[in-house]
């Protein structure tokens, strides 16, 4: 198994807030990994660390066989930020083609890919609208389309399904499953526990530590519950109790 993401003792403080406490973690190629944790736990910070966008207080990150930070490794990552970093004055199409060009896609490939990804996120009829006039969910979908554009072997998606209706959410997960079947590695964060039942591996971040790391079924058994939502709560409770002793 090829290691796609490898963190060793990654450590990060924001002032007195110890957000990442010596985290070590390996993600192998082809895994579909869900990253969950309470709001403010540090999921986005962990992703920033993986991408080399964070000045670490300690530890190393290797991504796709390059030591991060590394500019050319970013070529092989489809990334979707938690905030919609889009150009409001440009249309959806212009945003897609701008980010596509940044990823180095040639014009001919780009046209096909834009057609494809805009259908995946159901935006094909709104591409000529300025992003300023998009709804919150439409912006999310456009951000996701941008992440899918470059056909990268590694996808890192920070809360891709926030503000997206159930119908489209199912469609997006079908697409993610398809990409997973094609052998791509996917790391996804979410607060929607029901949608994450199908991942290969669930990571739970809390207080700077990864307090749970296994398949969803294993974790459900371990905590003797029937869904991930309960795992989230039980694991949290147990962690709090242990840390108070």
């Amino acid at each position: 198994m090829e290691k796609v993401i490898e963190l060793k003792n990654v450590d990060k403080h924001f002032g007195t807030n110890h957000v990442l406490n010596k985290i070590s973690l390996t993600i192998n190629s082809g895994q579909l990994v869900g990253l969950i944790g309470p709001s403010g736990a540090g999921k986005s910070t962990l992703i920033a660390a993986m991408l080399g966008m964070l000045r670490l207080d300690g530890g190393q990150v290797r991504l796709l066989n390059s030591d991060m930070p590394n500019r050319s490794a970013l070529q092989n990552i489809g990334y979707m930020a938690q905030n919609d970093a889009l150009y409001g004055n440009l249309t959806g199409l212009e945003n897609l083609s701008f980010f596509g060009k940044l990823m180095g896609l040639s014009r001919s490939v780009l046209t096909d890919k834009i057609h494809l990804v805009s259908q995946t996120v159901d935006l094909q009829d709104h591409l000529d609208l300025r992003v300023n006039q998009y709804s919150g969910g439409m912006k999310r979908r456009l951000s996701l389309a941008i992440a899918l554009l470059s056909d990268a072997p590694l996808l890192i998606l920070d809360e891709p399904t926030v503000g997206i209706d159930p119908e489209l959410r199912i469609k997006i997960w079908q697409e993610l499953d398809k990409l997973h079947q094609q052998g791509k590695t996917v790391l996804i964060t979410t607060h929607v526990m029901s949608e994450i039942e199908t991942v290969d591996r669930l990571l739970m971040l809390r207080d700077g530590h990864i307090i749970a790391d296994n398949t969803p079924t294993f974790l459900e058994k371990q905590y003797q519950v029937t869904n991930i939502e309960s795992v989230f709560i039980k694991a949290g409770e147990r962690y709090e109790n242990n840390s108070h002793i």
Binding site: M53, A81, A85, F99
Partner: peptide, 14 residues
């Protein structure tokens, strides 16, 4: 401030 600079830098742009 809109985060697009950060987004821009998470690409192979120099």
């Amino acid at each position: 401030t809109t985060g697009t600079l950060n987004r821009l830098l998470i690409s192979p742009v120099k």
